[in-house]
Amino acid sequence: MIQVKNISKHYDETEALKNVSLHVERGELFGLIGPDGAGKTTLMRILMTLLLADSGEAKMDGLDVVKNFKKIRNIVGYMPGRFSLYQDLSVEENLNFFATVFGTTVEENYELIRDIYYQIEPFKTRRAGKLSGGMKQKLALSCALIHKPKILVLDEPTTGVDAVSRKEFWEMLKKLQKQDITIMVSTPYMDEANLCDRVALIQNGQILDVDSPQNITSKFPKKIIRVRSQEMFRLINDLRAFEKTESAFAFGQFVHFTGKNNAVESAELKEYLEKLNHKSILAEEVEPDIEDVFMSMQEQSQ
């Protein structure tokens, strides 16, 4: 459904995308995972026919993003990273406007947006600028969906949205996927990667890996030990000072530790930390997470 072949793009001095290739199957929920400035937005804008790549080619539903940009604009739904609806128009007016612009009516495709829209319908006369973050995001999604697009592209839709709304939002995406809509979504949150069918890890304009979240973590060769003690800050510093440490990152309430080789056992770590007077130490082996993979890849690429 989406094909990207050797796309490169630079702005002045910075190279935003370096020889990026990937493909997204029809009906897939595909995630672009990467930190700010990785090139996610640039890639999406190229796919949305908003930017021209320096080299390489990309196709959406078999249509070239440069030659057939007009046709593509009829079959895609796009939600930019920044809230981009008319703040001085009400919820209802925004929705009606985008429906007519795409040559359809709200009634015609109401089925598709019902689950999302009914939550904001009580506020339909409120100006969009006065909505909360979660409601804005629902409205933006409704507007992007109102013409029943084949491909939906969402640029960091969950940034700046509370945890509950984020969860709801991903549930909505899962439902949309069942309606035969191909979805590409970007996010800087690693935990959201697990909700995608497949993800591309992207950093500094380069794709590090493309695979299902399960495969990405299961093929990770290193052993992860999570460690906790009463003094987190000193813990990280002490771990980093340990001769067998390759990396130690803060990871929620824990520190994720990888050794120079997988022979380092959690018992060994415990012993080392006890010597340094750490209290209530916990060290146990855990399954690697996408973030672990990402951190390690980041280390290697630097």
């Binding site: 949305m48 604009r73 809230f83 981009s84 008319y86 612009v101 507007c143």
Partner: peptide
Amino acid sequence: EMGTMEILLVSPL
């Protein structure tokens, strides 16, 4: 400036 042009451009207008 408001970013709405981005959406207008991606529409069939």
